[in-house]
Amino acid sequence: MRIMPETLLAAVPGAEEHPSLALVNSASELPGGKRYDELDGPDDAAAWLRAHDLIAPDTVLHEHCRGRLADLRADLRDLFTAHTTGDVPTTAAVQALNRALTCAPGALLLQFDPESGFTRSANHPVTQVVEHVMAVIADDAASLLTGDQASVLASCEADGCQRFFLRTHARRQWCSTRCGDRVRAARAYARKRALHSA
């Protein structure tokens, strides 16, 4: 994974509450052709899942599991894009989300630790842990696309930005201050050029 400056990876509005939104934004091409992928390898994917409290600290992922998460991310991007543009999503993306919703292990198992007491977690082989994580993310996506916040799900309007966010107010157009500043600077430069060429 290429480590991007923190300002490029700043969380967008809604990503902290919605792991599906965070997952969709975990890879993108940034203005200037720079790319980042927070699921670049199995270790990166595990770190991303731990950072979002979706797996236990000692969980190890394999490439197959990372690939499944990346595939889910692509399907969610398709669904979010269709939602924000008013287009029809691909049947494959809808089916993939439904598969993720239904293939998870049936229950979080009860665990007991003398220090932390009772907890529930997916104590299954790695593949089943990833299926559980995918079900959690898919459920969040389905709830986001059909719930009260569906109307505020938006894609960033800055040229070249591919991130999604929840509008915090009706006039918000950009996922971050950085994108907004970039657009305003480009507009100011274009006006200045137009004045000098006139």
Rank of each mutant, 00 (worst) to 15 (best):
A56L: 02
V136M: 15
H18Y: 10
L76V: 10
N98C: 08
G33Y: 13
G160C: 08
Q149W: 04
M134V: 01
L23V: 11
A45L: 01
E38F: 02
C156V: 00
A135S: 12
D58L: 03
H18R: 05
L195D: 12
R120A: 11
S176I: 11
A15M: 10
D40W: 01
Q128P: 00
T168A: 04
G117H: 12
P19M: 08
Q149P: 03
E157N: 10
N98M: 10
L21P: 03
W174N: 00
R66M: 01
D181Y: 10
E157A: 14
D71A: 11
R191L: 11
C156Y: 08
L145I: 14
D37Y: 07
H196E: 15
H196L: 04
A107R: 02
D139M: 09
P13M: 13
S176Q: 03
V24W: 00
C161H: 05
A10W: 06
Y189P: 03
M134P: 02
A96V: 03
R120L: 05
A82W: 03
V130R: 03
A122H: 00
R178F: 08
M134F: 00
H64F: 15
Q95I: 09
D43L: 06
D71Q: 15
V24H: 00
S143Y: 05
S143I: 07
A27D: 04
P42F: 13
A122V: 04
I3T: 14
G180A: 15
R184E: 10
G180E: 01
A141C: 06
N123G: 00
R163V: 07
F165Q: 00
A141F: 04
F165K: 06
A104P: 04
A122L: 13
S197A: 06
T59L: 13
P114A: 14
A185V: 14
A100C: 15
H169F: 13
A100T: 05
P114E: 15
V60C: 03
E6D: 13
V129C: 07
R187N: 15
C179N: 02
A10P: 03
V88D: 13
R73I: 12
S151W: 07
Q149C: 02
